[in-house]
Design a protein around this nucleic acid. Structure first.
Lengths: 160, 160
DNA sequence: GCTTTACCTAAGGTTAGGTTGAGGTTTTAG
DNA sequence: CTAAAACCTCAACCTAACCTTAGGTAAAGC
């Protein structure tokens, strides 16, 4: 009896998902083409979603707020087990993964801030040795002594 | 004599600027169309730059590293005096301005990290009240108590 | 049963920050 | 003086992350 009740999970239409997750229908289509979410079709070829798509979308949005690209999000989400609905621990470990990335980014930005601070503030801006003045070695060698600024450079690296 | 020597400031060609600033010629053209840098033309219609363009470009690149858009950079640079070569204090105040923005961003990311941490970690993820679970109020009202997450939303706001 | 609302696909558009290429001119090196 | 290197403009193309529009189908309300 309760079994029957649990069994006929109600599937959501794209409109319902859009409303509840506060994203545009077009975005849901888009996420699907990118493999971020999945849908089933009803007899009339309309998308039907399992409820846990809401959590997936919430996680996608949270990750985006962290500045993580959809590609990276997709890659991470794809590690979730397809066979079962992800558990709390699944989401938690994903969260830890992204937090580490965030920490990296925060650290990176802090280094940039300090570099700008140190270099523009220290008076060397007018000198040949200043990393800000000499764009070539904007990755400061002088000024504040070996500031390592090279984390979020994957995009550029990929480009070249 | 020295006066004469100081007076005929050597102007740089795009190729020279590109090389010294480590940016593509196309990028320099692009920056010019966006009003980020300025050039003069020689008799043959070729671009010639004053030396301080190098510093401008260095600053542009530094700002980009901070995640500041070219539009914002342009707006900030446009406040520099056109009449004279910017002084050290000009650059320093610009640097302070951007540092404040960076601090904002860092604070924002820190809040996001803490929200993800608190919410996924606290066990409420499976509950209706969780801001991560309920995308509508991903701007956490529960969990960690009023986390204000709304700084870098100009893009979206502008869109809607 | 009919109308309105929701949905479908495919293609093209948008913004940011450029890059690439075509077709032609100017500079520079030998 | 000539050939190569550098430069010019303009237009097209690129990625990300979607949105919009067109033309057509399905579902829901009365």
């Amino acid at each position: 009896m309760t079994i029957t009740a649990t069994r006929d999970e109600p599937r959501l239409s794209v409109g319902q998902v859009a409303k509840r997750a506060d994203v545009a229908v077009s975005a849901l289509h888009f996420y699907e083409t990118k493999g971020l979410i999945r849908s089933w079709r009803n007899a009339g070829n309309q998308r039907r979603y399992k409820k846990d798509v809401l959590r997936r979308i919430a996680v996608i949005k949270a990750a985006q707020k962290m500045g993580i690209s959809l590609l990276e999000i997709q890659e991470t989400l794809s590690k979730l087990p397809e066979s079962r609905t992800p558990t709390k621990e699944d989401w938690a470990s994903m969260s830890r993964f992204w937090q580490a990335k965030l920490d990296e980014k925060i650290a990176y930005m802090t280094r940039v801030r300090d570099m700008v601070d140190g270099c523009i503030g220290c008076g060397c801006l007018s000198m040949k040795s200043c990393p800000i003045y000499n764009p070539d070695d904007i990755v400061a060698k002088e000024c504040n002594g070996a500031v390592i600024l090279d984390q979020p450079e994957r995009a550029r690296a990929a480009k070249n």
